[in-house]
Amino acid sequence: MTLSVTDEEMALLLYDIQDIYGYDFNDYAKASLKRRINRLFVLDRFPSFAEFRFRLKNDAGYFDRFIEQITVNVTEMFRDPAFYLALRNEVLPQLATYPFIRIWHAGCSTGEEVYSMAILLREANLLHKSILYATDINAHVVQQAASGVFPMQHMKQYSENYILSGGRHDFSSYYTAGNNKVLFDVSFKKHMVFSTHNLAAESSFNEFQLIVCRNVLIYFDKDLQARVFDLFDTSLERLGFLALGSKESLRLSPANAKFRPVSEQKIWRKMI
């Protein structure tokens, strides 16, 4: 059995991190956060907890690595194709009625979701009047997202997802292939703004017609989830849409009262 960080030790680490770097992880779902911390502890072969703690406290560069490793960045293009099909059919026709469309991807990871959305918007002939704001707590993934470069090896699967999501074009027409990598059409980037943003601490920065926050909230505890829903509520126009991951729900939170579900695919609409 590998040695692991105890609850008390984790509490110490989180306290240090908040104190020194100003990041608050106290309201993350404890069991999965603890797993991530243990994973890093083992990965970086610390001989003891004390040394792990010392390094984190005294080496800001190592704290960056901590953020990169502690967050779960797993993502893909057209993840859950049925969700994108619902966006095409239920949400985009409503967005089409606005003169400008502002969309926020909160917890965008390496950007696959943002590019998927841009493709949908282009196919609905809406991209020209849209701006996609893509944010994440992890600066490293935001940088990657902004590059528009993705690994070649996943394109076959993404192309299958794309077709299942109702796509009718040749998926490969959206990128140019280089060695082991592909570069997505640079004209997409003109409609994207990338930035770091911490959902646990920072406030609203704009009003949107659609907020997409998928597979982020499962890593938060119930209280933090409720706070983030309030943040989304203040960041959404009336009749704006909120889209969550396939295992996430507004149902248990107080903000639920203001929203109405519009699709099985975890899409809600703000009614007041």
Binding site: A29, S32, R35, R36, V72, V74, I218
Partner: peptide, 8 residues
């Protein structure tokens, strides 16, 4: 309570 996690 239960938590879901889509990590590796």
């Amino acid at each position: 309570s239960l938590s879901l996690d889509a990590s590796e």
